[in-house]
């Protein structure tokens, strides 16, 4: 059984069709790069998988069950989603990093937080800092760690390195791959950077005007030169 399956999805917002006739499967442990032109519906697709939006037509199945039948909080803890625009809430980094534990009604595991900070190449004392004291790259890494602390099975990453320099981009990519290798987290990431897609992805899903124009192995995609579409 695929981990995630979208069946004949259509999404219309204010009578405008955003996604249409969308069907594909994601297997456990996949790393899928989601490419496509601006406005092709990539972010809307993530919002729908995460249940921030419901499809107008069709079904999203997670572990064989319609996502609309899940308790939304349960589903969203299984399918993490990091936005393109970094948003840290409250005053301090600590508030952001203990928030997942509060939601799970658990005591914060500071050793776990320390481990993640080390993997993300962040200093340990960053936890005491105010959110506005951090650079864009540091904020994005904290946002990613915040999502990882919920221990999702699927991670949706919406251009999380779009505004970062190469150094920060590579650190985040390393952290993503680490989650895939150590916890078999299934990764779907949106990127406009084909080099990044080539580095990270196993499969490519290419969206054009809300429809799938390619879904398959990375090698085939780049051989065909479909990235220039």
């Amino acid at each position: 059984m695929p981990l995630l399956e979208l069946v004949n999805i259509r999404l219309a917002l204010q009578e405008k069709t955003i996604l249409d006739e969308l069907s594909f499967q994601v297997d456990s442990g996949d790393i899928i790069g989601l490419l496509g032109t601006s406005g092709s519906g990539k972010t809307s697709l993530f919002r729908m998988i995460n249940l921030l939006q419901s499809p107008t037509q069709g079904t999203v199945l997670y572990r064989g069950k319609d996502t609309l039948t899940y308790q939304p909080t349960t589903l969203r803890r299984e399918i993490g989603y990091v936005f393109q625009k970094t948003y840290l809430f409250g005053d301090t980094i600590k508030e952001n990093l203990i928030y997942p534990y509060q939601l799970l009604k658990q005591e914060p595991d500071f050793q776990e937080i320390t481990d993640y900070l080390a993997k993300a190449n962040l200093p340990q004392d960053i936890i005491t800092k105010k959110i506005n004291e951090l650079s864009g790259g540091e904020q994005q890494r904290i946002a990613l760690i915040r999502s990882l602390l919920v221990k999702p099975h699927i991670l949706l990453l919406d251009e999380v390195t779009a505004s970062l320099d190469e150094e920060n981009t590579l650190i985040i990519e390393k952290l993503i791959l680490d989650q895939h290798q150590t916890r078999n987290v299934t990764i779907l990431f949106i990127s406009h950077n084909t080099q990044q897609a080539e580095r990270l992805a196993q499969k490519i899903l290419y969206l054009a005007k809300g429809r799938i124009s390619f879904y398959g192995n990375k090698g085939e995609f780049f051989e065909r030169g479909l990235n220039n579409e």
Binding site: R76, R77, Y81, F83, K85, Y87, F89, L104, R146, S147
Partner: peptide, 16 residues
Amino acid sequence: RDEVEIKLCLGANAKE
């Protein structure tokens, strides 16, 4: 909206 939706994505319910 972003703050609320990010919290929802982390598994918060509407009230949280």
